[in-house]
């Protein structure tokens, strides 16, 4: 078994200090973590635990002040330049002046992909997230959930190996969120991406993940890694099982000093 598992992301004693001028604030202290290829991993914790900071370090949007990060044997910068990851933010961050298809084509335009191929790839992605009929709509004509799907399609259109998601569903209502959970799992199964999913929602992390990394604040640190061995594919019904409830309790109990 062991040799079939390939490590995709290796965090080694990652620490992050911010200097706000008057004092140093420790956002993260010595986080070590391995994330395997194709794994769905949640970074779970309350605000101030450094979960978003950790995601941003992996995305090369922040430089850690100590420790190292390897993505497929490369530095985060190399991984970024090779478009190894796609990123989805809490807000959809769509371009109002571009229609849905053009929004998804944007990263391909930057990468100078020829027009016909851009169109084809964007359409394929939009079909996968279930928005094929809305391709010529503008973002403001879409609901919040649909906008976030466009964001996911845009992240995946560059064919990254990793999908980084920063609280992508936290601004959505419960019904939309549950629907998107199932859809995200389907997309994940079809594409075999490694997903790192930042959230402060315990049930969301249990429902989605293979592995939950529980982070605690003051200072931000990794306090537990919990494996979620619920069977896949998962549907909403799994939330009614005692195993699911037990896992939720286990995750909740793992928090320290919140």
């Amino acid at each position: 078994m062991k040799n079939t598992i390939e490590k995709e992301i290796v965090l080694n004693n990652v620490g992050m200090e911010f200097d706000n001028g008057t004092q140093k604030v420790t956002a993260l202290t010595s986080v070590s973590l391995d994330i395997n290829k194709g794994e769905f991993v949640s970074l779970l914790g309350p605000s101030g635990c450094g979960k978003t900071t950790l995601l941003r370090i992996i995305a090369d949007l922040l430089q850690p002040t100590s420790g190292s990060v390897e993505i497929g044997g490369e530095t985060p910068k190399e991984a970024r330049l090779k478009k190894k990851y796609g990123i989805v933010f809490q807000s959809p961050v769509l371009y109002d002046w571009r229609n849905v298809r053009k929004n998804v084509e944007l990263p391909l335009e930057i990468m100078k992909v020829p027009k016909a191929e851009r169109k084809e790839r964007a359409e394929a992605m939009l079909e996968m997230v279930g928005l094929k009929e809305f391709m010529e709509h503008y973002p403001r004509q879409l609901s919040g959930g649909m906008q976030q799907r466009v964001g996911i399609a845009r992240a995946l259109v560059i064919r990254p190996e990793i999908l980084l998601m920063d609280e992508p569903f936290s601004a959505l209502d419960e019904f939309t969120r549950e629907k998107l959970h199932e859809d995200l799992l389907n997309i994940w199964r079809k594409t075999n991406k490694t997903i790192i999913f930042v959230t402060h929602n315990i049930s969301e992390s249990v429902f989605l993940s293979d592995k939950i990394c529980v982070l605690s604040p003051h200072p931000g640190r990794l306090s537990a890694v919990i494996n979620v061995d619920l069977p896949r594919p998962r549907t909403i019904e799994i939330k009614n099982t005692p195993e699911y409830t037990a896992l939720i309790a286990k995750v909740r109990n793992s928090f320290e000093g919140v």
Binding site: A59, R80, G86, I87, F89, S91, V93, I158
Partner: peptide, 14 residues
Amino acid sequence: VEKEKHELMYSYAA
């Protein structure tokens, strides 16, 4: 222009 759009552009190495 919001920070995330800059980050998106950065992630695409624009």
